[in-house]
């Protein structure tokens, strides 16, 4: 009996070590590799990323109109993010190397909109010349690293500063959550892309569990790194932090944070709240003998609803893409 238990332990250890070894190397890839996502998912993530990048370009145009040095600065920060995300750092618990995202720090310093743009640029160069990420997964990588990572870092930092938490601790948690949020989003994208006809959740948990050995400590390392960077800037060039409004919490951020947390709370309790249609419209319609009839086109068949959303997204994305030069470029004087 004891021998079987020992054998089971040894087997489990070997299995976990192998799994960890394999996935920790995979996690080093950081971004979703070229070709993993099928066409429809690649297109969907790309269309989701487009408005965020467009907003980044709009902000860039707006700021660079009053500050001519802003575009070169954003380019330089893109180079910094590129280099940081190419640097391997040791992950002690996994016995391997991984690398940070760098989007937490760019989100804190330049704001999430510009940070998304920076990530898009760094990802494009990596996809074309390093086989790190890919052209087909560019949209998915922008969403996970750029959108989710930058917003998680920025919002965490601002929320903690609002609560008067000190600078180093706020930066640490911003880096930590930016990293973890990126991997959560990557896991969702990866699961959706490779699950095929299998159910979503079991595979999602397997991927999350596989990421944990590297990403749990790496998130902490990225938090420490972000904190170190902010403190170094604070000691050597506090004027830069003031210029970039890092130390200031604006009213817009407070309003945004309030809306964000209220939305999260509402979503968490959404199941308990019936909708207006159900409580008011349907009730009175039934009382007056006008019960709802069956829909002419029932979108609850197969993936019809998803297809319609995809179609609308594709049309919207095409129109947006076709006209966005008008939005982002300066008019000739």
């Amino acid at each position: 009996m004891k021998r079987i238990k020992l054998l089971k332990f040894v087997f489990c250890f070997c299995l976990i070590s192998t799994f960890d070894f394999l996935f920790s190397r995979a996690a080093r890839a950081m971004h979703i590799s070229e070709g993993i996502l099928p066409f429809n998912w690649a297109l969907l993530w790309f269309l989701i990323a487009v408005p965020f990048v467009a907003y980044g370009l709009y902000r860039l145009k707006k700021i660079s109109n009053s500050d001519i040095s802003f575009k070169p600065l954003v380019g330089l920060m893109a180079a910094v993010v590129f280099i940081i995300s190419c640097m391997p750092i040791p992950v002690p618990t996994a016995g391997t190397c991984s690398h940070p995202c760098g989007t937490g720090i760019s989100g804190i310093l330049l704001g999430p909109a510009i940070s998304i743009l920076i990530t898009a640029v760094a990802l494009l160069i990596q996809a074309l010349f390093l086989a790190h990420g890919g052209l087909s997964t560019w949209g998915a990588d922008i969403v996970s690293m750029g959108v989710v990572g930058s917003f998680a870092g920025f919002l965490t930092f601002k929320a903690l500063r609002l609560l008067k938490i000190n600078l180093a601790v706020s930066a640490f948690f911003a880096g930590l959550f930016a990293d973890w949020a990126t991997y959560l989003a990557t896991s969702v994208e990866l699961t959706a892309g490779i699950k095929g006809s299998a159910p979503f959740l079991p595979l999602f948990w397997k991927i999350i569990v596989a990421f944990i050995p590297t990403q749990l400590p790496l998130g902490i390392l990225e938090g420490a790194m972000t904190s170190g960077m902010i403190m170094l800037l604070y000691k050597k060039r506090p004027d830069l932090l003031i210029k970039m409004k890092v130390l200031k919490v604006t009213k817009a951020v407070v309003v945004f944070l309030s809306i964000f947390f209220i939305s999260c709370f509402s979503l968490a309790n959404a199941a308990e709240w019936p909708g207006v249609d159900e409580t008011v419209v349907e009730k009175y319609a039934e009382e007056h003998g006008r019960a709802a009839r069956a829909p002419l086109i029932n979108t609850d068949q197969g993936d019809l609803l998803l297809f319609v959303f995809l179609l609308a997204g594709a049309i919207g994305g095409f129109v947006g893409g076709y006209y966005w030069r008008k939005l982002t470029e300066q008019k000739p004087k």
Binding site: G75, A78, L124, I125
Partner: peptide, 12 residues
């Protein structure tokens, strides 16, 4: 977009 191209050039 032109802004994107410029950032790409500076980064490179």
């Amino acid at each position: 977009p032109k802004g994107f191209i410029e950032i790409l050039m500076f980064a490179y």
